[in-house]
Each structure stands twice: as structure tokens, then as C-alpha cells.
Design a protein around this nucleic acid. Structure first.
Lengths: 197, 197
DNA sequence: ACCAAGATTGGAACGACGTTCCAGGCATGT
DNA sequence: ACATGCCTGGAACGTCGTTCCAATCTTGGT
């Protein structure tokens, strides 16, 4: 997809016109504007993710949905921006619904289900946004390890008086796995949710 | 501030020039580009939030930081977009540090501190992004209650077979308080964190 | 008091973007 | 054959971030 090869900023109607060997008007006949185009692209990419059936119990299903989204966003970082853009987009609603159903299956008290599902969704959207920001910042050539190395060096050189925590975890930052840390956060929320059952 | 009166999209260098009764070149002499300008504005707004001393224990301190950020973002929604944009911005680092220190004070196991602070930060950034998206979508005249009412009506009219959860919580959506729900999410994560002490 | 040298300003100009507009091409039904 | 819709290509518009540069202020040495 053009979105992946050129980055989210690279999807211009001119680039699309060139790639499709057509004019701008032809594109506008099919979609109302760029937002709708991106929404459609997001929906298309995430369609496969949301269909997958969860194997284990509801906790495992939450993890599966979350990781499915994470992997999709990792592969297509522009989705992260898009998901945070329009709250009531159909795609986001579908994710919310999916999370809510699993929260209900967990046996969470009815009055706490909405908050629990919201917390999960907002956490996922937060990570999605951060991943998109990371992808936007780094130039195409660098690997994730390089970026982490540089950032870790920055943290190590912070003022010890003002930033003791970041200095302390700078080494962990260098070696950590984004996906594992994301999952750890999901588990943290799931652990908190289990108190409301 | 111009950013609040005109919305984040309203901050153009031309509007700034007009408001400051100067030219574009004058602005570019002081800041390198628009990103730097927004980063400076974000830092200025959040400076007061991060200084406030926390009254109670570390849990209370986490809630204070989170709510302080929430209120600041609620008042200046464009900050939400900005915070998610550049991960390693100084402002975000300060928030991360602050959260990390409280996580450490909570007595979380050393190897779990990084994940715990990350989870809190990502959740906060997720809500920030959603708030910014909400502010972007709604036209200036409508109140939050109106928006929730409309969205609640949308959820109520979803297909019962596909969206049972959202239909079920549509009424809660109409009456819920964004700030309380945000706090509930923070508490959920804090509850999960307390298992790693 | 003067004046070179830098710091700062205002505004014109540039290229790229999303979007609009419209003259045409290509079907299909009669 | 021809008229009526759908669909295409590309020119053109307005706005944005940004660059550029002549003009104007400040300032410090003589």
C-alpha cells in the first residue's frame, strides 16, 4: 500500500493520482475527502484483525484483540494516528464493542463495565498514538534498536537530581521489547479489572 | 491564548502575525518552526501542572498528576494532540519522570517499575488524544452534554446482534462524567500495579 | 555625536497541500 | 444514431508552512 511505502504524510492526493495514473477528480468521485479515504483504509486493514476468533477465555481474548491491534499498528503506523483522530469512527466502535464484550464475559460488575472497557481502549489508543509518533519521527533508514539506543543515551545524560527515575530505567529502555511492554500494560489493567468482579 | 480561542487548527502563522501585528519573518526569528512553537506553548501551559506538590501518598500523587494533566488538556484540547505527537519531548519526559517516581514510591518491584509507569503514561496520553479528537470534531456552539446525547443515540441505534455491549452502556455514556471515568481508569491501573509490590 | 555591525522586523514570494470545477470520454438504453 | 447518465483527467483556487530579503531598529566603539 502507498500509505506504508511513503508514510502517512506521503499519502497526498497528488501521489495517489500519480500512482493510480489518474486525476484528482477521479478520486473525489469515490470518496468525499481525505478523512474518509483514511477511514476506509483503516477499516480495510483492521477488518482482518477484528474477525479473528479468540481461543481461550475472556482475558486471553482481550490480550488477543490488543495484540492484534498492536501488530497491525506496528506494521502500518499511520493507523495509530487515524485511530486517535475520530473517536466515533466505526472502526473504533468495533474495537470498543469487542473489548466490552470480553469485559462483560470476565464477570465485571455491570456498573464498572463501561469504565473498564474505556480504560482498555484508551490505553490501546495511547500506545497506538505513541507508535505512530515514533514512526513519524525516525527517518526511514534507522532500526528500532538504533532509536532506542539513542533515546536511552538521552535518558542517561539527564540531570540526576531532576530525573532519577528515567536515568534508572534508561538501560531497560534500550533492551525492552515494545510489544512485551504493551502486553504488560494490558495485563496491569486486567489485573485491576479483576478486582471489580 | 490564541490557541484556545481559535482551536488548534486556528493557530496559523498568518493568524499569529495578524494578532501580534507583525510579519511571518519576525516569528521565525524566535522559533525554528511550528512544531517548536507548539512545543513551547505546551511546555508553558503544563509548567504549572507539574510543579504542584502532591499532598497524600504516592497513589494520591499519581492521581494528582493525572488529574492535573486531564484538567489542563480539558481546558486546552490542542495539548492532547501535541503530547501524542513527539514522544521524547521534554514535557512528556517530565510527566514520565513524575509518574515513575511515584511508582517507585509505591514499592513496585524494580523490574516492573518501567512497565507500570509506561502503562500510566500511555493511558493518560490515550485519553488526551481522545479529548483532543472530541474537541476537534464538535463545532464551537455545542455543549459536552449535547455531544454525549448524540453519541448515545448513535450507540442505541446500533445493530443489537453486532453491538450488544455498546447498546447496553449507551445510557451510561449519556450521563457519565469524562473526568470521573478518566480517574476510574487510573485507579484500575493503580489497582493492577499494587499486585506487583 | 557619529556610524559601522549586528539584531530584528514586515511582507512578498514559493512550493505543496486539499479541494473544486468542468469539459470531455465512455458506456448503456432507446 | 443519439441522448443520458456515470466516471475521468487536469487545470485552477485558496490556504498553509516556510524562505528570503530589503528596511529598520539597537548597540557599542571612537
Amino acid at each position: 500500500m502507498l500509505l506504508d511505502s511513503a508514510g502517512e504524510g506521503g499519502l497526498t492526493f497528488r501521489a495517489l493520482s500519480a500512482r493510480l495514473r489518474t486525476g484528482a477528480g477521479a478520486i473525489y468521485w469515490h470518496v468525499a475527502n481525505k478523512d474518509e479515504l483514511l477511514a476506509a483504509a483503516t477499516s480495510a486493514v483492521l477488518a482482518g484483525v477484528m474477525d479473528a476468533e479468540a481461543p481461550g477465555g475472556p482475558e486471553e481474548a482481550v490480550r488477543a484483540v490488543a495484540l492484534g491491534l498492536f501488530d497491525a499498528i506496528d506494521e502500518h503506523p499511520w493507523i495509530g494516528t487515524q485511530l486517535s483522530r475520530l473517536a466515533s469512527q466505526t472502526t473504533t466502535l468495533r474495537v470498543f464493542e469487542r473489548l466490552g464484550q470480553q469485559v462483560r464475559a470476565l464477570g465485571v460488575l455491570v456498573e464498572a463495565q463501561f469504565d473498564a472497557a474505556s480504560a482498555l481502549l484508551n490505553y490501546i489508543l495511547g500506545v497506538a498514538g505513541q507508535n505512530a509518533a515514533n514512526a513519524r519521527t525516525q527517518e526511514p533508514g534507522t532500526s528500532r534498536a538504533d532509536v532506542l539506543g539513542e533515546e536511552s543515551a538521552v535518558w542517561s545524560s539527564l540531570d540526576p537530581g531532576e530525573f532519577p527515575f528515567l536515568r534508572g530505567v534508561a538501560a531497560q529502555l534500550r533492551d525492552h521489547d515494545d510489544r512485551e511492554q504493551f502486553l504488560a500494560g494490558v495485563n496491569l489493567i486486567l489485573a485491576g479489572i479483576s478486582r471489580h468482579t
